[in-house]
């Protein structure tokens, strides 16, 4: 059965292999080129410590590197972001829809192989190589971006959209979701074009919606600064909510007016901002944040949502295939 299905999907699998070979070769070449730039300009130290004037890694030195390489790395990340959608469109959507359109599913349905076995063989042969390709390209891009260290996109922290969507479990989860969505809509609608359109629209909308809800996926930690005029947000973390606390530790509902009162007024600058804040009832500064270290958990929660949806869609595909005539 696997051999039959492999022969049926041979053209797509060869196309995918070609995309992989070209993509991987390009990534290896571009990374080698960037590494030689870093070496040539003695930026090895800056990769480790980031933009810091005292280490000889001032803005000017790093800037010329970023002018050339930052957008290129972002394009590489966007390529990995796009891969799951492509797998859904060209792997998942036509998987059953094309056979149902052409009526060739009847050939398999009128032999002794069960529909479930036919279906699972098709899914395995289409999905497994796609996943391998996505993960391989993800790792190559991560390896490339990693070479730029703290002067590349990684400096923006793990929640930077292009970094988050191309690291950890994210590409696998997005791919499985997009693939099963395309597969289900194709099996239910029996139309490849409908399946492709719906997959594109739903995947993009859901990805956008879930990434805007990203900071609510795990519970935030409250960090408090005893000096109300100093914020202590770590770079790379996500701020969910922030403000000031009163003497009893309650959130001050309308802190803006107090903050305005402590701003500079004409010629008389406020010298002790902290005291001024306290005088206006703002005793402590606080923020509810998702720290950079929690990125792994955020990845897990997000992946669980996508994988859960994928499981539901696979079951729904089984139902749709069973009721096909």
């Amino acid at each position: 059965m696997i051999r039959v299905v492999w022969r049926q999907q041979r053209a797509q699998l060869i196309t995918m292999l070609a995309v992989f070979v070209v993509g991987a070769a390009a990534l290896l070449a571009v990374r080698a080129s960037m590494v030689s730039y870093l070496d040539g300009h003695a930026l090895g130290n800056c990769v480790a410590i980031g933009i810091r004037a005292d280490g000889g890694c001032g803005n000017d030195v790093v800037q010329s590197f970023q002018d050339i390489w930052f957008d290129r790395m972002k394009v590489g990340q966007l390529f990995v972001l796009a891969l799951p959608v492509l797998v859904g469109l060209f792997g998942g959507a036509p998987l059953f829809a094309r056979e149902l359109e052409q009526g060739t599913h009847v050939l398999a349905f009128t032999q002794s192989v069960s529909r479930i076995r036919w279906m699972s063989s098709k899914i395995a042969v289409a999905a497994a190589p796609a996943l391998v390709v996505v993960v391989a390209l993800q790792l190559l891009v991560e390896w490339w971006v990693g070479a730029a260290g703290k002067i590349g996109p990684l400096a923006s922290g793990p929640y930077f959209y292009a970094t988050f969507g191309t690291s950890g479990l994210a590409p696998v989860a997005y791919t499985l979701f997009a693939f099963s969505l395309g597969m289900f809509v194709g099996a239910a609608s029996r139309r490849t074009l409908v399946a492709m359109t719906v997959t594109l629209a739903v995947t993009v909308v859901l990805r956008y919606a879930l990434s805007s809800l990203q900071k609510f996926l795990v519970s935030a930690q409250r960090i408090v600064s005893d000096d109300p005029s100093v914020s202590k947000v770590e770079p790379g973390s996500l701020t969910v909510f922030g403000g000031y606390l009163d003497a009893n530790g309650n959130v001050v509902p309308n802190a803006n007016s107090a903050v305005m009162n402590c701003g500079s007024k004409g010629d008389a600058p406020v010298t002790d901002t902290a005291t001024c804040y306290r005088d206006h009832g703002l005793v402590k500064w606080f923020a509810d944040v998702v720290p950079a270290e929690a990125a792994g958990t955020v990845h897990l929660v997000e992946a669980a949502i996508y994988l859960g949806l994928a499981v539901v869609l696979v079951l729904a595909t089984g139902w749709a295939v069973r009721r096909q005539a």
């Binding site: 049926q8 009526g103 060739t104 599913h105 009847v106 050939l107 032999q111 002794s112």
Partner: peptide, 16 residues
């Protein structure tokens, strides 16, 4: 599902 003793020639002759 197909009965093992039955063979069916569909009207549109489905073949890959």
């Amino acid at each position: 599902r197909m009965h093992p003793d039955v063979a069916y020639l569909a009207q549109n002759r489905p073949l890959y």
